[in-house]
Simulated assay, not measured.
Amino acid sequence: MDGMPEREHDDQEREFDLRWADDAQHKEPSARARMLAARWKENPPEPQPFRADPEPVAPRRSSWVSTAIVLGSVAAIIVLLGWAQFRAPY
């Protein structure tokens, strides 16, 4: 060897391999890209506008209905706790 420890020599070889791979002129597409290209060759997707509108959503309840439900639930809990306190023996 050239006086370098084995681990340092392996690290330099690995670094060289990574640089060599990153500098490659042609990079192979991923498996998903190849799969989609093959699928779209036979059955191309329909054109979509950029940021297509989502499907219509059912209208939500108005905020006052939600507020009334929350306040009613809190009031019912307060009344229930007061009643339980009143019935508890001292």
Score class of each variant (00 low, 15 high):
Met1Asn: 14
Asp2Ser: 12
Met4Tyr: 12
Met4Val: 12
Met4Lys: 15
Pro5Thr: 09
Pro5Trp: 00
Pro5Gly: 10
Arg7Ala: 10
Glu8Leu: 00
Glu8Trp: 01
Glu8Lys: 05
Asp10Gln: 09
Asp11His: 07
Gln12Trp: 06
Glu15Gln: 15
Glu15Asp: 15
Glu15Phe: 13
Glu15Asn: 12
Phe16Met: 14
Phe16Thr: 08
Asp17Asn: 08
Leu18Pro: 00
Leu18Asp: 04
Arg19Asp: 10
Arg19Gln: 10
Ala21Asp: 09
Ala21Pro: 05
Ala21Leu: 06
Asp23Ser: 09
Asp23Gly: 11
Asp23Cys: 04
Gln25Pro: 05
Gln25Arg: 12
Gln25Ala: 10
His26Ser: 10
Glu28Arg: 12
Glu28Asp: 08
Ala31Cys: 00
Ala31Arg: 02
Ala31Leu: 07
Arg32Glu: 02
Arg32Phe: 06
Ala33Asn: 03
Ala33Lys: 09
Ala33Ile: 06
Arg34Met: 04
Arg34Tyr: 05
Arg34His: 06
Met35Leu: 12
Met35Gln: 06
Leu36Cys: 01
Leu36Gly: 02
Ala38Lys: 06
Ala38Arg: 05
Arg39Leu: 11
Arg39Glu: 13
Lys41Gln: 06
Lys41Cys: 10
Glu42Ile: 07
Asn43Leu: 13
Pro44Asn: 02
Pro44Asp: 04
Pro45His: 05
Pro45Gln: 02
Pro45Asn: 04
Glu46His: 11
Pro47Val: 02
Gln48Ser: 14
Pro49Met: 05
Phe50Thr: 08
Phe50Lys: 09
Arg51Tyr: 03
Arg51Ile: 00
Arg51Asp: 07
Ala52Pro: 03
Ala52Thr: 01
Asp53Ala: 14
Asp53His: 12
Pro54Thr: 05
Glu55Asn: 06
Glu55Gly: 07
Glu55Thr: 11
Pro56Trp: 05
Val57Trp: 05
Ala58Tyr: 12
Pro59Cys: 11
Pro59Glu: 03
Arg60Trp: 10
Arg61Asp: 15
Ser63Arg: 14
Ser63Lys: 13
Ser63Leu: 15
Ser63Asp: 13
Val65Gly: 07
Val65Ser: 13
Val65Ala: 15
Val65Arg: 15
Ser66Tyr: 10
Ser66Leu: 15
Ile69Val: 14
Ile69Cys: 15
Val70Trp: 14
Val70Ala: 14
Val70Ile: 15
Val70Lys: 14
Ser73Asn: 00
Ala75Ile: 05
Ala76Pro: 03
Ala76Gln: 02
Val79Leu: 01
Val79Phe: 11
Leu80Ser: 10
Leu80Glu: 00
Leu81Thr: 01
Gly82Thr: 03
Gly82Val: 03
Gly82Pro: 05
Gly82Ser: 03
Ala84Thr: 12
Gln85Ala: 15
Gln85Met: 14
Gln85Phe: 13
Arg87Trp: 02
Arg87Gly: 08
Arg87Ala: 14
Ala88Ile: 04
Tyr90Ile: 12
Tyr90Phe: 11
